[in-house]
Amino acid sequence: MADETNTKKFLYINRKAPYGTVYALESLEVVLIGAAFEQDVSVAFVDDGVFQLMSGQDTAGIGMKNFSKTYRALGDYEVRKLYVERESLAERGLVSDDLMAITYEDENEDYAEKPSIHFVDRSEMTKLISEHDVILSF
């Protein structure tokens, strides 16, 4: 456990689809505010949470704000580690190509664009969770 002066490892776990409840949107609000605190931030997508990253989201028919573009801007907030659970995708008939391409610019490699999304299986997700200091689950 890090002490008060150290950086802590924050993990946000998103478990819900983006528009059926407010959890996805309000989780994203915490991630964006939290980015200013210079902690080590990762964001995980499990269960219906994988729907948050679907490409081609269109909310015109439900009268709600489409906030999906914000995920693609996470790299600008230094949030570069997004983990998607493979089993959650497969259980919902989804493949990696159904998700948005989310990248960040690596300042150590001449601002090369690199993928932010990493696909991990359930056992790796378990390990990832156990390696973090602060878990916020939405």
Binding site: E4, K8, F10, E29, V30, I33, G34, A36, F37, Q39, D133, V134, L136
Partner: peptide
Amino acid sequence: GLGQLIEAGIQ
């Protein structure tokens, strides 16, 4: 603000 939540995580 939400910063109070992050601070609670840190502290």
